[in-house]
Design a protein around this nucleic acid. Structure first.
Lengths: 194, 194
DNA sequence: TCGGCTTGTTGAACTTGTTCAATTTTTCTA
DNA sequence: TAGAAAAATTGAACAAGTTCAACAAGCCGA
């Protein structure tokens, strides 16, 4: 039952036999991550891939100017992946930090490779998941080009209200690509005119 | 020999037997696309997936405000994919236009599905290609957040000098997410101070 | 519950990028 | 090769977003 959420998530993308489900789940081990601690820090190599059962994570990178850029947030039913570091086993550009006490299922790189080789449906699963993610990233870039910061802010809180409610304004602004001061001004403008 | 470039491209990502190579190539048919004509237009359904042999394409979308946003450019050795429309067979948000006389290899959706089902290595190939593309899109979004327009412009022309040389400034500016007037001002500033 | 730390707010000055309109330059096409 | 169309340039006024600094408000942790 620990793996129920994972199974349900996988079945959204591909069809699986019970044996396949069991073999996949065997490799995923639960881990509890405390609020504010890191599953991965910039500069280290990511040896696991994760799936969130409970809690919330922020995946971000710190650039040369010292600014934090948030790639995405992951709550229950999301995957925690740093493909680049995981696939190529080189130091990651990313940090994965728990924003609250959280629980994840982790699979080791060697075990994932083993699954890819022994179960074709796992290739299919991650092929489909990656393609869906790709479409989402393309759309996000277009939004960044075609919408103002204010429009992006409203799009975000309307699309992910549950996630947004768990975040500080600084975290949201680092996702939108604006300063937290400017986000504060956007919010004031909106409450005034309401 | 028509398929040589395609085979070489595929072998960058996965290992293949000669039989597999042959079966894959059989489904790809060459097509010539004239300068300025479209392989796909916004609103229609994409029934093919393509690989560029010669020439250059621009993949873009027009938003509500009437501005064109360029997702990417594809020259020789690049793939032409609108995953969203191709996978889900719903009307595309994208336009794919030849910027010069071009030659592509096309595969039909039904044939691609057939390949996915009969050759596991094809699942692996597109899983790997999608994951690599995903990393590239994440990096591009971070660059959009952390670099100025001028820095993004230099990054682009330094990373893709051959592509950049084929493009108009309007096309480049629609990729960078700025107006063509502003790109013109960036260029002037740079020639002055040189 | 005190003190310190992080977060949020606000304003003023500034930088980056846009808009619009006019002009020049380049590229197609008949 | 002329004439039209598209692309590039420029300037002035403007809008969007940043920076810095000061202060207020929350939220731990001891």
């Amino acid at each position: 039952m620990l793996h129920d959420l994972l199974i349900k998530n996988i079945k959204k993308h591909v069809q699986l036999s019970d044996t396949e489900v069991e073999r996949i789940c065997n490799y995923f081990e639960p881990k509890v991550i405390e609020k504010r601690s890191f599953l991965l820090t910039q500069g280290s190599i990511y040896k696991y891939e994760g799936f969130v059962l409970e809690g919330c994570f922020r995946i971000f990178t710190t650039d040369k100017k010292g600014n934090e850029n948030t790639l995405y947030f992951a709550t229950k039913d999301w995957w925690l992946i740093d493909i680049d570091s995981f696939m190529n086993q080189h130091p990651s550009d990313l940090n994965i930090q728990a924003l609250e006490d959280s629980k994840v299922l982790l699979i080791k790189k060697v075990d994932k490779m083993e699954l890819y080789n022994s179960l074709p449906v796992v290739e299919k699963l991650f092929r489909i998941m990656s393609q869906k993610a790709l479409v989402a990233w393309q759309r996000r870039l277009i939004r960044n080009h075609s919408l103002t910061a204010e429009e992006r802010y409203h799009h975000f809180i309307q699309t992910y209200p549950e996630i947004a409610s768990k975040l500080t304004d600084r975290q949201i602004s680092s996702y939108l690509g604006i300063t937290h001061e400017f986000l504060s001004k956007i919010k004031r403008k909106n409450t005034k005119t309401e």
